[in-house]
């Protein structure tokens, strides 16, 4: 199967007062046609930056310092001219941003804002556009589309606005839909509806999805493959099944542990201690997770761990999977740490 989107060693730097700090570090992933791909990680891990970089819309203070983003194997998005990029944005790749409440221009009607993307890329007549808008609004589950399309964003609820944003993102039948936390701002019942809707529609239009979330539950419900991001790096990349049945990276294990305890009220809520380091706190060498890792070894602090193929469809960036990291500080065998983990959650 050929890849729709292939990101190779993408690095993004931020300029703060004349010095550059690395945020996203050598990120690689590839999304096949019609695949549902997920990126998961805590707040501040660089998920949104990655998605904005794909659209080539990074803010002035941010820049791609390394790597490529290949779209349909031929177009390199990081070096494409703005003119070429404008043809792709909204048509071949569209994006749903994190905040539905502020994603729409407050002074234009829904109809105007959806038709705008059609006008940019096609030459439909007014009547055709109207019909297309009504039909897509129906598709995203908006009742009475004829009257809703005449309304302004402030007249709609958050869930409705998010449906409008989804309609706007899908109306050109894009090849790739990037959804950056499409449901975090919504309440739980609406969240499930929106996810289901996106699943249905992307199947209908043969669209690939890049689902960005901090919620492993969302990944489990919607994705086939997943990249776990920590502090700007992919630490584990795997099929969703493998990730949930045998997570290998200590960070992934921690994330899963925290959602498992959420379901089981008898246990204390588990969360990984500490915080994601900010770009200015990051060191050049060593494992970025070292400050919070329960299995940290001296080695981890000095040398950057390699990506190791830990199973047939799973890669993890950790010293524990190598000869050199066979024993951790407690003298515990790496593989034992992983087995121990599995035992904890097998029941």
């Amino acid at each position: 199967m050929s890849n729709l989107l292939e990101i190779n060693n993408l690095s993004i730097d931020v300029k703060i007062e004349k010095s550059y700090y690395n945020i996203v570090n050598r990120l690689s992933l590839s999304i096949a046609k019609k695949q549902k791909y997920g990126i998961v990680g805590e707040s501040g891990s660089g998920k949104s930056l990655t998605s904005v970089a794909i659209m080539n819309l990074l803010a002035d203070s941010l820049s791609v310092s390394e790597g490529q983003i290949l779209f349909e194997e031929t177009q390199e998005l990081t070096t494409l001219s703005n003119k070429e990029m404008m043809k792709i944005r909204g048509k071949d790749i569209s994006i749903i941003f994190q905040e539905p409440m502020t994603a729409l221009d407050p002074i234009f009607t829904i109809e105007y804002q959806i038709s705008e993307v059609l006008k940019i890329h096609f030459n439909h007549s007014k009547k055709e556009m109207r019909e297309m808008i009504i039909s897509i609004l129906k598709d995203v589950g908006i009742p009475r589309p004829e009257s809703i399309m005449k309304s302004y964003p402030h007249e709609l609820s958050g869930g409705m606005r998010q449906r409008v944003v989804i309609a706007m993102a899908l109306i050109c039948k894009p090849k790739l839909l990037i959804a950056d936390e499409p449901t975090t701002a919504l309440d739980v019942t609406i969240q499930a509806q929106i996810l289901e809707l996106m699943n249905e529609l992307t199947e209908k239009y043969d669209t690939s999805i890049l689902m960005i979330t901090h919620d492993l539950g969302v990944i489990n419900e919607t994705c086939e493959r997943v990249a776990v991001m920590y502090a700007g790096e992919v630490v584990e990349e795997s099929s969703v099944d493998s990730l949930f049945s045998h997570p290998k990276h200590p960070y992934t294990q921690g994330l899963l542990k925290s959602i498992h305890t959420l379901g089981d009220r008898s246990e204390k809520l588990y969360s990984i201690p500490g915080n994601v380091p900010t770009p200015t706190q990051l060191k050049k060498h060593g494992c970025r997770f070292a400050s919070r890792c329960p299995h940290v070894m001296d080695l981890c602090k000095e040398e950057t761990p390699p990506y190791v193929e830990v199973s047939e469809d799973q890669v993890s960036k950790c010293w524990l999977h190598t000869e050199r990291g066979e024993y951790n500080e407690q003298g515990q065998k790496a593989s034992v740490a992983s087995e121990e983990y599995e035992k904890t959650f097998s029941d």
């Binding site: 904005v52 659209m55 819309l57 404008m86 043809k87 792709i88 944005r89 909204g90 048509k91 569209s94 994006i95 941003f97 905040e99 502020t102 994603a103 729409l104 221009d105 407050p106 234009f108 705008e116 993307v117 940019i120 890329h121 944003v165 706007m168």
Partner: peptide, 22 residues
């Protein structure tokens, strides 16, 4: 600086539309 400007750019709009229309 507002979020919705990014949405309009993400539609593939030219800078002229972003600035004058919105």
């Amino acid at each position: 600086r507002q979020d919705f400007i990014r949405t309009i750019r993400a539609k593939g709009a030219r800078e002229r539309i972003v600035i004058f229309n919105h």
